[in-house]
Amino acid sequence: MATKAVCVLKGDGPVQGIINFEQKESNGPVKVWGSIKGLTEGLHGFHVHEFGDNTAGCTSAGPHFNPLSRKHGGPKDEERHVGDLGNVTADKDGVADVSIEDSVISLSGDHCIIGRTLVVHEKADDLGKGGNEESTKTGNAGSRLACGVIGIAQ
């Protein structure tokens, strides 16, 4: 089992970053940390998408990683996509320092995120509470600013 993974985020604009993942036990939580720069100040949706395909930019990554066919939600919700990591918060300089621990994603097994795409979005994720159909699919997080395929790390 891989215990570490990394993702280099890039987009068409100024947004870029490096996100690290570490899972010490196969059924334990995954620590997610790193930094994203070039964002507007505020909240930005942060999700693992189904495919590791960036051939047409971030759009070819498909929908959120959702092997259990659930509705979109927040990272602490029972009803959520596996890939729903909530929001990252950018400061006035456009930098989001990421520090998350998640017990639904994994670096092995059915919820493995390796080979899938991590995406940072234009807007805040409403965590499935926006009151419309799009909220239950995407959290109304808007366009995909930057993305990268999650790969095994040393």
Rank of each mutant, 00 (worst) to 15 (best):
A2S: 11
K4N: 15
K4M: 00
A5H: 00
C7F: 11
C7L: 02
L9Q: 01
L9V: 12
L9K: 02
K10L: 09
G11W: 02
G11C: 06
P14L: 09
P14Q: 12
Q16E: 12
I18Y: 15
I18V: 08
I19A: 06
I19W: 01
F21K: 05
E22P: 01
Q23V: 01
K24H: 13
E25T: 15
E25Q: 05
S26D: 05
N27Y: 15
G28C: 06
V30C: 11
K31R: 15
V32F: 06
V32I: 15
V32M: 13
V32A: 11
K37M: 15
L39H: 03
E41Q: 15
E41L: 03
L43W: 06
H44L: 01
G45Q: 02
G45D: 03
H47Q: 09
G52R: 10
G52A: 06
D53T: 09
N54T: 14
N54E: 10
T55H: 04
T55R: 14
T55V: 03
A56G: 10
C58M: 07
C58S: 13
S60I: 12
A61C: 11
G62E: 14
P63R: 07
F65W: 13
N66Q: 05
P67V: 13
L68E: 09
S69C: 09
S69L: 11
R70Q: 12
R70L: 14
H72R: 05
H72Q: 10
G73C: 10
P75A: 09
K76R: 13
K76Q: 13
D77Y: 08
E79I: 13
R80D: 05
R80L: 05
H81C: 05
V82W: 13
V82E: 01
L85W: 00
L85Q: 00
G86T: 02
G86E: 00
N87H: 07
V88L: 13
V88E: 00
T89M: 13
A90S: 12
D91A: 14
D91T: 07
D91P: 01
D91E: 14
D93Q: 14
G94K: 03
G94Q: 04
V95H: 07
V95W: 15
A96M: 00
D97L: 10
V98C: 04
I100D: 04
D102P: 01
S103L: 06
S103M: 13
S103I: 05
V104G: 11
V104P: 00
L107Q: 01
S108H: 12
S108R: 12
G109V: 04
H111A: 13
I113L: 05
I114Q: 00
G115D: 04
T117G: 06
V120R: 03
V120S: 01
V120G: 03
H121N: 12
H121P: 04
A124D: 09
A124E: 08
L127C: 11
L127P: 06
K129G: 10
G130W: 08
G130V: 11
G130Y: 06
G131R: 12
N132W: 11
S135D: 06
S135A: 04
T136Q: 10
K137P: 12
K137T: 11
T138L: 15
T138F: 07
G139L: 06
A141W: 06
A141N: 06
G142Q: 04
R144H: 09
A146H: 01
G148K: 00
V149S: 05
I150T: 03
I150S: 03
I150L: 01
G151M: 10
I152Y: 08
A153Q: 06
A153M: 05
A153E: 11
A153W: 07
